[in-house]
Design a protein around this nucleic acid. Structure first.
Length: 179
DNA sequence: CCTCAGTAGTGCC
DNA sequence: GGCACTACTGAGG
């Protein structure tokens, strides 16, 4: 785990989106991270602090190949996404992230729902922590997890961005599935 | 509205 | 191994 972060070369590229500056990091096995922030400085700082020991180099081609799909997902988060990803995390985190990918666009789940779904009903707070540790913004839709009482709770990249993503998905969802 | 305890995974020491 | 963190939750002021 830590070894791989040292040995694996990671390429990165930034790009402007409608909800902020995006940085995509790509390693030998796939997309390592997608972060959102106010500007290049912010997202690059976040990237460096996530991979303090890795060899980060400006894009040599792999980011450029995946960027259209990633940006498309950010503008239209209900689209399918099937490019290879390579997020490293603990077993628990992987379970949480896997569960998140099964929340359909247009709907939300509570931290309790996710905890139950992975068979750790009482690990609610740990689930929230794992959501916050999700390195694949929008690809792993942690923005669809909200409080049981309906509150938005937090979002690593800013609650306003979470609100906007959910708003778009809700609009899209009510358009193809009129009540 | 606010506080508090229960609770479980993670990171740092 | 301990200890202090949480993007929680439900109960009780």
């Amino acid at each position: 785990m830590a070894m791989r972060e040292v040995l694996d070369a990671i390429e990165f590229a930034t790009c402007a989106s409608s909800i902020g500056q995006v940085v995509v990091a790509h390693g030998s096995q796939g997309i390592r991270a997608v972060f959102i922030g106010d500007d290049d400085a912010a997202v690059l700082l976040a990237l460096r602090s996530r991979f303090p020991l890795a060899a980060l180099t400006p894009d040599q081609g792999s980011c450029k190949r995946v960027l259209p799909d990633v940006m498309g997902l950010i503008e239209s988060p209900w689209k399918d996404f099937s490019l290879p990803v390579d997020s490293c995390g603990t077993t628990f985190q992987q379970q949480v992230w896997h569960a998140l990918r099964e929340i359909p666009a247009g709907s939300t789940a509570s931290y309790t729902d996710i905890a139950q779904r992975i068979g750790c009903a009482s690990a609610v707070r740990a689930v929230a922590q794992a959501c916050g540790a999700n390195p694949l913004a929008v690809i792993v839709p942690c923005h669809r997890v909200v409080r049981r009482d309906g509150g938005l709770s937090g979002y690593r990249w800013g609650v306003e961005r979470k609100r906007e993503l959910l708003r778009r998905e809700s609009v899209w969802s009510s358009r193809i599935e009129p009540a």
